[in-house]
Amino acid sequence: MTQQAAALQTYNNELVKCIEDLHSKRDELNRQIKLEEEERERLQHDIRVLSEKLSRVNESLTQRLAARATLDRTVAESEAAYTKILESSQSLLSVLKQEAGNLSRATEPRRRDH
């Protein structure tokens, strides 16, 4: 019986060691799981922060694009109006020169007649 008791004690020791190894592996796995869950939380937080920043940037960009479009229209309209003013000024100058020439011709013969 002592042989059986010794064998039983050996088996018992091996079983205890196997169970302790399983506990150790489970503890290590739990540690890794906890680390990954913490990393996941950090990443989810970073995603939320970046999503909020992206939303703000998109909103700002939309406003700036609208402001630029308004400025582009204003510049185009101002340039067109300025071009019309220049054309009108040129036409007015041409008419005034022509009228001045006509007036000069009209007044010259009278001077010669006297």
Rank of each mutant, 00 (worst) to 15 (best):
Q3S: 15
L103D: 02
L103S: 04
P109N: 08
S104C: 04
T62C: 10
M1V: 08
E37C: 06
S60H: 09
E37R: 13
Q90R: 12
K97D: 08
S88A: 14
E108V: 03
R56K: 12
V16Y: 04
R42Y: 01
Y82P: 02
G101H: 11
A67H: 12
N102F: 07
I85K: 03
N102C: 04
L35I: 06
L54T: 04
E20L: 06
Y82S: 07
E79G: 00
D72A: 00
V16R: 05
Q9Y: 10
R56H: 13
E52S: 14
D113K: 15
N12E: 07
S91T: 04
L35H: 03
H45R: 11
H114K: 14
Q90T: 04
E36G: 01
A81T: 05
H114Q: 14
L71E: 06
R31I: 04
L29C: 09
S89P: 00
S104R: 07
L103N: 07
M1K: 11
T70D: 12
S94M: 02
L29S: 12
T62I: 09
E87G: 02
A5I: 15
T2S: 14
D113C: 10
E41T: 06
D46P: 05
T74P: 00
E28G: 03
K53C: 00
K97E: 11
H114W: 13
E87N: 09
S55E: 10
K34N: 08
Q90C: 01
A67G: 10
E77K: 05
A6V: 07
Q4C: 00
A106Q: 13
D21W: 05
L65C: 08
I19D: 15
E37H: 12
L8R: 13
I33D: 03
E36R: 13
D21C: 04
G101N: 11
T2V: 11
P109K: 05
A80G: 00
I85H: 04
A66L: 08
I33F: 02
C18E: 15
A76K: 10
I47M: 12
